[in-house]
Design a protein around this nucleic acid. Structure first.
Length: 575
DNA sequence: GCCGTTTTCGGCCCGACTGTTTTCAGTCG
């Protein structure tokens, strides 16, 4: 790591996560690993800047940070690394993180092949498996060697995380298929997909059945299954269209317990189990065991699980151990926004630029969705490739919007634009044009390779323009395609709070930008958020649902979002 | 390595599957 780099919370967390991995390898006990992970997670979701916390001497007020880790953090902030980290790194194979990234290969296996065969990279491990050198090692046989080889080849051909646009249709296909099995009941999506994370690692499904084996058999022989990774009497995993799908089956009486368990997150469940122990209970996917009487109480519903632990129900989107359990205990869980609270869509493209539908068609669709308004935000003049409008065209477009509004009752089309932020931070229209528009969305669409400092001041300059109402897709990421430009998002959030500029939650399944953590940070900093679908065709309007789920993961309530307000209030807000 | 209205030492979430060392370790979620 560059010594001169200013470290963020996530940089520090990243090193601690790596230390957690390395600690497993150098033979520390498992609780050391957990301690590093816990500290890393709490630093990652910390509201304040870790540098400031360190300066104030308050590192040990962070949960999971004790004397040793506080010292480690201080060292990292000063030097960009720490002695213990470097020491552990030098004792392990160079390619350790890639090897451990392969499902089925853990620290014990890596250590075994390193010590016995001198293997340091994933490619060497693959070669050793091909040359049948692994099966001679203690604890590894012919089957284990084959399994490792298959896992390596699979991981090389697979993306690590899958965008929702890919995962959701696959999940729907499998659920529909299983529902047609005569013995499958309650087929339900769980895991990170049910928590509505922006990407998922695999797809987790559960079901109940009086004949689990027939359901497992149907699952593993389902059309499209490319590989069966494992198959037991209650659980199986397959690969379908390059995605791993896990199915787990239990008795109907403990369905709620199972649903809760497999929805996760793992961290949330660990906290719940710790809480259960404190109350003399033991929580598992089968139910809650009363330690004093030794009786197991299976929970038929998820609500029952939380109720028995003395907690209000916690919705799946919040189950990340980011303070939801403390809030549940204190009775301060947020009253989260729902799709029904959304009254309009503020980011749409029409045939005036690169959209597929006319303004009237967009308005009709929005009316059918129960909205009170939309804001049509076609591209500005520099986006030639996307049909960006020059000044004359945008004024003509405003005339059309006026005519459409005259024909509508109880619904309003707002005139907006998604205006390019030029590379120097100026906007793509003169102020007199911006002033005429109801809503101005500013967005970066070019010059992605600018360095962090330049990009940050470019965006800051744009949102300091008094006509800019919303900053669109603030990091520019495209899930699975590009990571986004370098930007100091904390600085952008701070300036947005000062200038009262809203920040967009772009609901497009390939963007979902801001993400949940930053959206929550922005809201806590006093920034208004606005969910926009960035729709280019009518079916994109339904991305609003993904945007709402993201907002819920960011702990947002209706009042935190611009597009839960009436059109009059939106216009008043935009000034 | 962290933590404490049971504990400053002795705990730390729970269970399934797989393969192999025939009673259990490694890995995963």
């Amino acid at each position: 790591m560059n010594k001169d780099k200013i470290l963020s919370n996530s940089d520090v967390a990243e090193i601690l996560y790596r230390m957690a991995v390395l600690s497993q390898f150098v033979g520390e006990n498992a609780f050391v690993t957990r301690a590093y992970q816990k500290a890393a997670r709490n630093i990652e979701s910390l509201d304040s800047d870790i540098r400031q916390v360190a300066v104030n001497g308050r590192l040990r007020t962070i949960p999971g940070v004790g004397r040793a880790i506080a010292g480690t953090i201080t060292e990292i902030l000063k030097a960009g690394t720490c002695e213990r980290y470097e020491e552990m790194k030098s004792a392990v194979p160079a390619d350790i993180f890639r090897m451990l990234g392969v499902t089925g290969i853990g620290p014990k296996t890596v250590r075994l092949v390193h010590e016995n065969l001198g293997i340091t990279t994933l490619d060497e491990l693959e070669k050793a498996a091909v040359g049948h050198r692994l099966q001679k090692l203690p604890g590894i046989g012919v089957k284990q060697e084959k399994k490792i080889l298959r896992a390596i080849r699979r991981s090389k051909s697979m993306d690590r995380r899958i965008p929702l646009g890919v995962a959701i249709p696959i999940a729907e296909y499998v659920v529909e298929y299983l529902k047609r099995c005569p013995h499958a009941e309650n087929v339900t999506v769980t895991g990170s997909l049910r928590r509505h994370r922006d990407t998922v690692g695999d797809i987790d499904l559960i079901a109940s059945s009086s004949d689990p084996e027939s359901v497992i058999a149907a699952f593993t022989t389902m059309p499209g299954v490319a590989d069966v990774i494992g198959s037991g009497t209650t659980k199986a995993s397959v690969i379908l269209r390059g995605v791993q799908i896990d199915l787990r089956i239990v008795d109907r009486s403990s369905f709620g317990s199972l649903l809760q368990h497999f929805t996760g997150s793992k961290e949330h469940n660990i906290r719940l189990r710790e809480l259960a122990i404190g109350k003399g209970m033991k929580l598992s996917e089968y139910g809650i065991l009363d330690q004093t009487t030794g009786t197991l109480l299976p929970c038929g519903t998820e609500e029952e699980v939380y109720q028995r632990l003395g907690l209000p129900f916690i919705v799946p989107e919040l189950r990340e151990d980011r303070g939801e359990i403390e809030a549940a205990i204190a009775g301060t869980l947020p009253d989260l926004v729902t799709l029904a609270d959304i009254r309009g869509d503020l980011h749409l493209h029409s045939t005036w630029s690169d959209g597929a539908n006319t303004i009237s068609e967009l308005a009709d669709a929005a009316i059918r969705m129960g909205y009170g308004y939309i804001c049509v935000t076609d591209h500005s003049r520099s986006r030639g490739i996307a049909g960006g409008l020059n000044e004359e065209a945008i004024i003509e477009k405003m005339g059309e919007i006026e005519r459409i509004n005259e024909s509508l009752d109880g619904f309003t089309v707002l005139a907006g634009s998604e205006v390019d932020i030029r590379s120097d931070g100026t906007l793509d229209y003169d102020d007199y044009v911006l002033e005429m528009l109801d809503i101005v969305i500013a967005a970066v669409h070019s010059g992605f390779s600018q360095d962090k400092r330049t990009m940050t001041s470019r965006i800051v300059r744009a949102i300091e323009n008094e006509h800019v109402d919303i900053l669109a897709h603030p990091t520019g990421r495209l899930i699975g395609e590009r990571v986004g430009y370098e930007v100091d998002i904390d600085r952008v959030i701070a300036v947005a709070a000062e200038t009262e500029t809203a920040i967009e939650i772009n609901a497009s399944q390939s963007r979902l930008d801001l993400n949940d953590i930053n959206a929550r940070k922005a809201s806590e900093s006093g920034v208004m958020l606005a969910i926009g679908t960035d729709a280019h065709t009518l079916n994109h309007l339904h991305y609003m649902e993904s945007g709402v789920h993201l907002a819920r993961r960011a702990w947002l309530e209706p009042r935190d979002l611009l597009n839960t307000k009436s059109v009059a209030d939106v216009l008043r807000w935009a000034g």
